[in-house]
Design a protein around this nucleic acid. Structure first.
Lengths: 105, 105
DNA sequence: GCCATTGTTTATAATATACGAAACAATGAA
DNA sequence: TTCATTGTTTCGTATATTATAAACAATGGC
């Protein structure tokens, strides 16, 4: 059952990108259209579509079409939870390095 | 403050690899020597050293030398928690696809 | 000092990711 | 039907990641 690590890494990889993290953070528990997300991220629409397409393929987001626009939302709220915990790890790392800087001064 | 997403992605990237996930899972809250980890992962020692070196550089693990061997442990237990939640996401995804298979049959 | 053990570093090659440009597709309105 | 709007797909290129081999470094015992 060692391939579980491959699948696990696959989930992590899907989150391990600054723009996709921003998408997740922007979406949260809400449902937003492609255009809404585009307004926040301010990247090329082709690129946003690629990121969202990947996230959809990996089962992180789901889509719903309403007329001319397509709405995205996060499938499993645990994804948001996992991201938040990782951000806490980051913030604790940063505050540790600040402590070090304080000591050196 | 948009570069927070870069840092956040950096933390995620460090976890987003099957072997590093296996290292984290093997370590857990314990402290293990390089050799101990090597016995579990069964990869080339150079490659293991690279993975551990990266994880140390990113502040995920810490080392302690005792004589000829070097001991590794996870710095922040939240890393384990984040990994566990992501594994739950994966398992829920897998059980969803199993449900689908059941319906099709 | 010499050597076996334990790990690290460097160089290189293979593979995967990310991005932009341009073409393409689906919808609703006129 | 035609057109504007909203996304998607494809292709080429640049960059990052990963693994292996081989050389190198640090420690303790003799």
């Amino acid at each position: 059952m060692k391939q579980i690590y491959e699948l696990h890494a696959d989930v992590c990889k899907t989150l391990a990108n600054p723009k996709r993290l921003e998408i997740i953070n922007t979406l949260g528990a809400k449902e937003l259209s492609f255009g809404d997300i585009l307004d926040v991220l301010k990247i090329k629409k082709a690129n946003l579509s690629q990121h969202l397409g990947l996230m959809r393929a990996k089962g992180i987001v789901k889509t719903r079409r309403d007329g001319v626009s397509i709405y995205y939302r996060i499938v499993n709220p645990k994804v948001i939870k996992a991201c938040n915990i990782m951000r806490e790890v980051l913030l604790e790392q940063l505050s540790e390095s600040n402590k070090l800087i304080g000591k050196i001064k």
